[in-house]
């Protein structure tokens, strides 16, 4: 949040071309981004502008065509447990209970009893302590995403990457999830890269909102969200909040989408 924080995550001229090396689809073009430790950065942009591509490259699930990604000054070459990922789609293992799904991240790390303790701790954190024995199919979409968040936090990654995790939820649930996420983030001190196409979500959550242009993804505008923390849902109606939202919106409209 301030200059004293060391840099956690760096994307340095990251370019991604799908398919042919010269004529293939250019999804990201020399994309630069640097995120301080314990800060919350939201990447906003129209659908198809390359947000997921950027996140997948940081996660190590996708290979950059050129450019470098660094976490704590070390180059990223593939997926790893220093980066946790929450996907937009529901990614719980349907044959495992809620608790087993969280323990899934800890297999081979701890003994069974210890795994269960950690899983229950994190389920409580996301407010699902009473659902440990349920199966994913018995949960609502919001609850499933909360389990996925618990799973991602359980092994203490340094960076949490979230790709429109609340995109499929209804507006009321989305508000609740955003508040919950901020509370967890406040308690845990985490570095978060959060992707969304929802400007309001970006303003509510982030320290910095970064607006991407349409493909190939480049940074069009970056604004500091200097709203006070901790933030609750009542802040959404404040003049300050609305002004930041307008600022981002007008930049979006200036591009003429």
């Amino acid at each position: 949040m301030n200059a004293a924080q060391p840099v956690k995550l760096v994307l340095d001229r990251v370019t991604k071309r799908f398919g042919d090396a010269t004529t293939g689809l250019l999804a990201l073009d020399k994309f630069d981004l640097s995120i301080d430790e314990n800060s919350f950065v939201a990447l906003v942009g129209p659908s198809g502008c390359g947000k997921s591509t950027a996140l997948n490259i940081v996660a190590g699930l996708e290979q950059a065509s050129s450019g470098i990604i660094m976490v704590d000054g070390r180059e990223v070459t593939g997926p790893g447990r220093d980066r946790g990922v929450v996907f937009q789609s529901y990614t719980l293992m349907p044959w495992l209970t809620v608790a087993e799904n969280v323990e899934f991240a800890l297999i081979d790390e701890f003994d069974k009893a210890r795994r269960r303790v950690i899983a229950l701790e994190h389920l409580q954190l996301v407010g699902l302590g009473d659902f440990a024995g349920h199966y994913p199919s018995q949960l609502s979409g919001g609850m499933r995403q909360r389990v996925a968040i618990a799973r991602s936090l359980s092994y203490r990654p340094k960076v949490l990457l979230m790709d429109e995790p609340f995109g499929a939820l209804d507006a009321m649930t989305r508000y609740q999830m955003q508040e919950l996420l901020l509370r967890i983030w406040d308690e845990h001190k985490l570095t978060v890269l959060f992707i969304t196409h929802d400007i309001e979500e970006a303003v509510f959550l982030a320290d910095r909102a970064i607006l991407m242009s349409a493909r190939p993804g480049r940074i069009k505008l970056e604004i500091a969200i200097d709203l006070p923390r901790p933030r609750g849902n009542e802040i959404r109606t404040s003049e300050h909040f609305q002004r930041l939202k307008r600022e981002l919106l007008s930049a979006v409209n200036a591009a003429g989408h």
């Binding site: 996660a59 190590g60 699930l61 593939g78 997926p79 790893g80 447990r81 980066r83 946790g84 990922v85 996907f87 789609s89 990614t91 293992m93 899934f104 991240a105 092994y155």
Partner: peptide, 9 residues
């Protein structure tokens, strides 16, 4: 996406 969960873990 489920395979990717495995990779990220």
């Amino acid at each position: 996406d489920l395979l990717n969960v495995g990779h990220t873990l």
